[in-house]
Amino acid sequence: MLRRTLFALPMALALGTTASAESDKAPEDVLNELINKVDSKYLTQSEQNIMMMPDNPAYWTVDEGEELFSEPRGPKNASLETCDFGKGPGVLDGAYTEMPRFFADTGKVMDLETRLIHCMMTIQGFTKDDAPVKKRHGSGSDMMKLQTYIASKSNGQPWNPPMDHPLERAMRDAGKELFYRRAGSFDFSCKTCHGATGKRIRASVLPSVEFPEEWTKAISWPAYRVGHQNVRSSQHRVRGCYWQMRQGLVKPGSDASIALISFWTDAARGQPAILPDMKR
């Protein structure tokens, strides 16, 4: 009996890495496993947030997104169930952790937000001025409901943005240049705040791009931001960082924003995503 158990143990561990087993984990379990593995002041900075994660308000956003996703909407009265996020029409499990990626139908590298907008416009017939496409921020927006739902289907999955297409590599490499590019009144680049572990701005502990186990939490958007009382996206984080850096407004969905997101996702490669996350 003991022999059988010992024999079965490696099998169970091996199976533990498959998609179905990972998705059973709650986001706080994914985070706690990282905390047990590495020493990171960033991961452990808010005990209260970790305690609140089982009641993350982002779960309401996930539920609302799930309903919206399958509901026939827009001028074409179609649902998003035929939208291809890279793993086939309607396949959401593990799709987000493999974005940004190249899409042959547009010839572009797209992140979750731009791909979602593409589907809302082509499949559902919304225009860029219709509220579901135009309103990008806030837990009450269709955009954040849908993004949070789709991303939640990648919880616990390792970040694995494909780099097979030359355009995917070109965008990632340009994103790295953008990350280290100093400009503006304060001479800041992303590296100023995210180049070392354990540093603080005022009382906030900053994540390092060179520490994948903490960087995965940094890029795990959508996340409920306690200070904003709203679920926020990757695009919202990019905009906020450029604003704080005293550089210009990065345009939502621009190739510059997607290149940066390609680089930052690649920097967390192999580490499990925490979705939805809760941040300070």
């Binding site: 030359p166 355009l167 590599r169 070109a170 965008m171 490499d173 340009a174 994103g175 790295k176 240049e177 953008l178 590019r181 550089q247 210009g248 407004l249 990065v250 345009k251 621009s254 190739d255 510059a256 924003s257 290149a259």
Partner: peptide, 20 residues
């Protein structure tokens, strides 16, 4: 994009491709 150096593409994305 694939024919540019990473540095040239980054500059292109900022100044010519509507990044900002």
């Amino acid at each position: 994009y694939t024919k540019m150096t990473p540095k040239a593409l980054a500059e292109h994305l900022i100044f010519k491709a509507g990044g900002f």
